[in-house]
C-alpha cells in the first residue's frame, strides 16, 4: 500500500509517495535525499538517526513515515543560530572537537539540542538526586542524558565538553 505524505524538512515542505512499510529514516534519506540523519544500527540502539521531530529529539529508524504525515523535521543540517550562522551547539562541537569520523555527529547534535531544551523545561533524569527540584546540568547529567547516542570513535570527552559549552552559552541567553 502506498500513501502520500507531506513533511516539513528543515523548513521546506515536501510531499512524497511512500510504501506504508517505509521508515521515516528511509523516507528522508532514500526518497527525499536528506542524508543528514544517519542509518547506524536501524534498530534504535545507536542514536545516529536522531532528528528534532515537532521540536523534540526523536529517532527516525523506529517510526513509519506514514504515521508521521504532517510532521516538522529539523535535522542537524537545518539548525541555525539566531544570527543565521552556526547554531551554538554546532559551534560547540567544532570548538570542543566533539567528533572524530563525524558519522554519529548529526544525531549527537540534535540530541544535545533536545537535552538543553529538556533541562530548560525542568525535566529530571536517572541521575538527578531530587525529583522535585529543577535539575542542574552537571557532567553526570550530560553523560546520562546523552547515553542514547553512541560514538564508535570514542569522542565522548569532546562531546561532553561541547554540551557543557552549549549549555553555558544557552544560560547566557545566546542559544537555542
Amino acid at each position: 500500500m502506498d500513501a502520500e505524505i507531506s513533511l516539513t524538512v528543515d523548513g521546506v515542505r515536501r510531499t512524497v509517495m511512500v510504501d506504508t512499510r517505509t521508515t521515516l529514516l528511509d523516507a528522508l534519506r532514500e526518497r527525499l535525499g536528506v542524508t543528514n540523519p544517519k542509518k547506524g544500527c536501524d534498530h534504535g540502539q545507536c542514536g545516529s538517526c536522531t532528528v528534532l521531530l515537532d521540536g523534540r529529539r526523536h529517532l527516525t529508524c523506529l517510526s513509519l513515515a506514514v504515521a508521521n504525515d504532517g510532521a516538522e523535521v529539523t535535522t542537524a543540517g537545518g539548525l541555525r543560530g539566531s544570527d543565521g550562522g552556526l547554531h551554538p551547539v554546532q559551534q560547540a562541537f567544532l570548538d570542543q572537537d566533539g567528533y572524530q569520523c563525524g558519522y554519529c555527529t548529526p544525531g549527537q547534535v540534535c540530541s544535545a539540542v533536545g537535552v538543553l531544551d529538556e533541562i530548560e523545561q525542568g525535566h529530571v533524569s536517572h541521575v538527578s538526586d531530587d525529583l522535585e527540584a529543577d535539575p542542574e546540568l552537571t557532567d553526570d547529567e550530560i553523560r546520562e542524558r546523552m547515553s542514547g547516542n553512541l560514538c564508535r570513535c570514542g569522542a565522548y570527552v569532546g562531546i561532553l565538553g561541547a554540551v557543557r559549552q552549549a549549555a553555558a552559552a544557552s544560560s547566557e541567553g545566546g542559544a537555542a
Binding site: 521531530l53 529529539r57 540530541s111 533536545g114 529530571v124 533524569s125 536517572h126 547515553s147 542514547g148
Partner: peptide, 15 residues
C-alpha cells in the same frame, strides 16, 4: 518517574 527514567534513552522516551 524513576522507573521510566531508568529505561531506554531520551529519544525513545519521547516516542
Amino acid at each position: 518517574a524513576r522507573a521510566l527514567l531508568a529505561g531506554a534513552s531520551g529519544q525513545i522516551r519521547n516516542q
